[in-house]
Design a protein around this nucleic acid. Structure first.
Lengths: 139, 139
DNA sequence: TTCTACATTATAATAGTTCTAAACTGTTGA
DNA sequence: TCAACAGTTTAGAACTATTATAATGTAGAA
């Protein structure tokens, strides 16, 4: 839980002017103990709902991408017609329930470290992401 | 390496009529010892190039999706503005070179089996996919 | 050969995302 | 305090990947 002046600092720290739109987006994204997954559209809807005023879609896109770039959000690699983001930026993996079309965090303690015994010369590993697709046991 | 009549059988075996378009797509996809990655657009271009005639994009989409459904192609979960497919349907994972925007197979022998010590009740695991993002060592 | 169900095709429609350019605003420094 | 400017927001257009449509074509069975 952060108050507005803390969001102001947060934004300043990554070189973004603390505009009222950005602070509102911060509130929706970070003003909770729980992390969550979202698409841009879902986020835009939440914002409209919690403020009764619209923020331009373009601004939502811009801000989400800026946060992602700065490491305040993660994008989840999943084949979908839209991008999924995660407010949980700690290292962890995901279940994707193909029946329910639902993303679920896997606690990092529940995954043995993934060992890759090969490298590409001149390249360094940036991230290792595991996606576990699941479906109903008896369809 | 398969000849056309083998593609005919392959198509019949999955309940698809062996049309000349589908056989052509088979040739481009499977007539090589090497597996490869592609996007729909790249595939359409290859087809045009190797036949000097166009196959409608809609047909390419339909056929690729039919093959995917039948397990003759795999879709690679990666965040991108377009879908990537893989003619290598054996179990394996990928590097994604973010600098080069290039997908590279990881030999399955080079990855320790991924152990997930948690389950979702009522759901069974369909696949476990590892995506290792890499970038240039000194950017 | 003829019939029918399945396929192909060009094109329109859709949807997510990015671009644009004009209006607006936070910040700086006089 | 306030002017100036660079960064920001905005609505809507543009763009792109993908899917839908509906008319035409074709493989395969009888």
């Amino acid at each position: 839980m952060l108050n507005n002046s803390q969001y102001t600092e947060k934004l300043r720290s990554i070189g973004l002017r603390p505009t009222k739109q950005r602070i509102k987006i911060c509130e929706v994204l970070f003003n909770s103990n729980k992390t969550f997954h979202f698409t841009i559209n879902e986020l835009a809807k939440r914002i409209t709902k919690s403020t009764n005023e619209n923020i331009s879609l373009a601004t939502v896109y811009n801000t989400v991408h800026a946060f992602k770039k700065k490491g305040y959000l993660k994008e989840i690699p999943i084949n979908s017609d839209q991008s999924y983001f995660d407010t949980n930026t700690s290292h962890h993996h995901h279940f994707y329930d193909e029946t329910q079309k639902d993303l679920i965090d896997i606690d990092d303690a529940d995954v043995e470290p993934v060992k890759i015994n090969t490298r590409i010369p001149g390249k360094k590993i940036k991230s290792v992401e595991v996606l576990v697709k699941v479906e109903d046991e008896k369809p």
